[in-house]
Nucleic acid binder design. Structure first.
Lengths: 191, 191
DNA sequence: TGGTTCATGTACCAAGTGGTACATGCGGGC
DNA sequence: GCCCGCATGTACCACTTGGTACATGAACCA
């Protein structure tokens, strides 16, 4: 189940490699050389280049889901602390790489899109509903916003490397959510 | 200055093509065929494949900056209405594609990263400072958050296509900002 | 023992790759 | 007229690409 099967072993190695230098732009031979096998083996075990890409995308997705499952009911600051940890940056770069490729229709990455939002929202919303007493609809809205904020700030973080600065921004967002908002505050022109 | 110079004409065509089907995964010949020229011409005018990629990335960046300049002092809802318009989706897909490639170090896209955050913050912050009476530091924090929220929600939008749903989420964020937050809520940190 | 299945290596293929050499047209200045 | 610089086309280069054919080994089961 772990790395005993050669396919699993190769997949793990490919994943590892994908996190250092990307994967969408690599040829089978490049990748094979990098992980110490032959392009013949990659084709044997994954059928085609696209099959390999698909398998990697799927694995990344699965890792994400595992992450989510583990993080339910954790508070926002700890969650950000977790995601902004530099050891996760390679994985997050890979995520954005695959995401970008999926958006332009690169085969083998398309199904990646379907699981980019909904599973996260579904995983986070119940905790919000429970701990903040929100009705389900509102909890899902709030969760969707949280996912977007986290992704947007991760993009910032990966581009700038400025963990402290971005963390400050995240803190500001958290304080918004903690203070709740007053729908009666009406406007028109900003307060 | 427009499309009189052949290089400009080719660049415009390449950009156009890049928005429909991406560009990072295309070969020179594919691209040339798609825009009705020869790969020879692309190499002549851009020096190399990487030169072309760079030029396209640069043009996208420039278009972004123009967008920003035009949007200063516009209110948040109109801004979202603008960015979420389906006619801009191809451009935004291209943005995320280039961003993803830049994050994994694809040559010709690297400098893209440096201008992903700061120019936007600098363009937006003064308006926030002016209209909401925030000090400069706070205005920049707020602007950085706004950029992240917008990008995160655009990612959601491009993946799901659910403009109405995502717009609701954005609305929730706007209401947070409009109601202001109460730092006295509990929290020790942050003034 | 022999047969079967999975894993791997070697060698190859046609097609496509980025890039270059070279010839050709076409315009305006002299 | 002539030349010169830009733009373009044709033909080619060595190399890489994804994929396949085929042989071989190792492990297991009969």
């Amino acid at each position: 189940m772990t790395a005993s099967q050669p396919r699993e072993r190769l997949l793990a190695a490919a994943l590892e490699q994908a996190m250092h230098g990307g994967i969408a732009g690599m040829s089978l031979r490049e990748l094979a050389r990098a992980i110490g096998t032959s392009h013949r083996m990659l084709l044997y075990h994954f059928g085609s280049r696209e099959g390999l890409l698909t398998a990697v995308a799927y694995a990344v997705e699965e890792a994400q889901r595992a992450e989510v499952a583990q993080l339910v009911a954790v508070d926002a600051r700890r969650l950000w602390q977790h995601f902004s940890d530099p050891v996760l940056w390679p994985a997050e770069r890979l995520f954005f790489e695959l995401y970008g490729q999926a958006l332009v229709g690169r085969p083998g990455t398309e199904e990646f899109l379907g699981n980019a939002i909904e599973p996260w929202v579904t995983a986070i919303a119940p905790a919000l509903s429970r701990e903040a007493g929100l009705d389900e609809r509102t909890a899902r809205l709030e969760a969707r916003l949280a996912v977007a904020v986290t992704r947007g700030l991760l993009l910032d973080l990966l581009a700038t490397g400025d963990r402290q600065g971005v963390t400050e921004v995240f803190e500001r967002y958290v304080q918004y959510t903690e203070s709740g908002y007053r729908p009666d505050a009406n406007q028109p022109g900003q307060p």
